[in-house]
């Protein structure tokens, strides 16, 4: 007799109608001014001259090359971080060892570092004046102001996403099922692929989706390491900046509308994954 739904209805917990309306109004107004209006503006500006100029901006060769680089970067960094995330979550959730807490904190580290710093550290490591700069120069390898730098910075920034989603999930689930599989004669890989992964697949998808959104949208870190070489190290978010700074608003918002669509799709998939995995992540 303690169902939350029932108790919520109890008159002692009900605010007067005007209070409810007022609070909903405040919440909607706050989110409206901060989120909805800017989002609406992106699409409005992008299509302000009709679909033609929007298509032109999107099909522009520089835009296409930025999209290619963004896809490549996201593909590499998301894959790497997904593999890492699953491994690290498995490690921390399933084994007990000295330094487990420290490891778990270190994984969160890139979240608390400014994107600009995330770029800076790679410049200091691989840049011309960096620690490894002279060696890289001597071997004619270019990292900074080149694609590898973009990939590295993106991977750093998106590093914790998958691990962070999976860890609480795996901890909450415990290892009884894996142990049961072992007693049934499964080997390590069979346990992992047959028991562990299926149980967290929606959480994994959720983590990958968020990781991908950030990878495709990262601006600060990539801006520092890319050097803004058009057609070469220009990702989509950087391209938005370039178009905007050239006062090509329709172009900038057209490309921004692509990224906004990506964000909306991400939120949609996130909702679904959240529901499927059961409860909040």
């Amino acid at each position: 007799m303690s169902g939350a739904a029932m108790s919520r209805a109890s008159p002692a917990l009900r605010e007067p109608l005007w209070v409810r309306v007022l609070l909903i109004g405040v919440a909607v107004g706050f989110l409206g001014l901060l989120v909805v209006v800017p989002l609406g503006l992106v699409f409005h500006e992008a299509l302000s001259r009709g679909i033609g100029p929007w298509l032109d901006a999107v099909r522009d060769e520089e835009t296409l090359s930025a999209i290619r680089l963004t896809l490549l970067t996201a593909c590499i960094s998301v894959t790497a971080n997904a593999v890492f995330g699953v491994t690290a979550a498995w490690l921390i959730a399933r084994y007990d060892f000295v330094g487990r807490g420290v490891l778990s904190t270190l994984i969160d580290l890139p979240f608390s570092v400014s994107p600009v710093l995330s770029g800076l550290i790679f410049v200091l490591l691989f840049g011309r004046q960096g620690l490894l700069g002279p060696w890289l120069d001597a071997h004619d390898v270019k990292v900074i102001f080149a694609v590898p730098g973009v990939v590295l910075a993106t991977t750093f920034v998106t590093f914790p996403f998958v691990a962070k989603e999976l860890l609480p999930l795996m901890q909450a689930q415990g290892s009884h099922e894996e142990e049961a599989a072992l007693t049934l004669g499964a080997n390590g890989w069979q346990v992992f692929l047959g028991v562990t992964l299926p149980r967290v697949k929606w959480g994994l998808l959720y983590g990958i989706i968020l990781c991908n959104a950030r990878a495709m949208g990262e601006f600060g870190a990539v801006s520092v390491v890319s050097g803004h070489v058009r057609g070469l190290t220009n990702t989509v978010p950087l391209h938005v900046e370039i178009l905007y700074n050239e006062y090509n608003y329709v172009g900038a918002f057209a490309v921004a509308s692509l990224l906004s669509l990506l964000a909306l799709v991400t939120l949609g998939v996130k909702k679904v994954a959240e529901r499927r995995q059961g409860g909040r992540p």
Binding site: A27, V35, L41, L210, G217, F253, L262
Partner: peptide, 30 residues
């Protein structure tokens, strides 16, 4: 509304930047 709360997580910051600027600049919507 619930989904939109997460938009700042998902929206690339450069998009948020130009959108907010356009909305709140002197001749923007707001």
């Amino acid at each position: 509304l619930d989904a939109l709360v997460d938009l700042p997580f998902a929206l690339p910051t450069s998009v948020a930047g130009i959108a907010l600027t356009a909305v709140y600049s002197q001749n923007g919507w707001l």
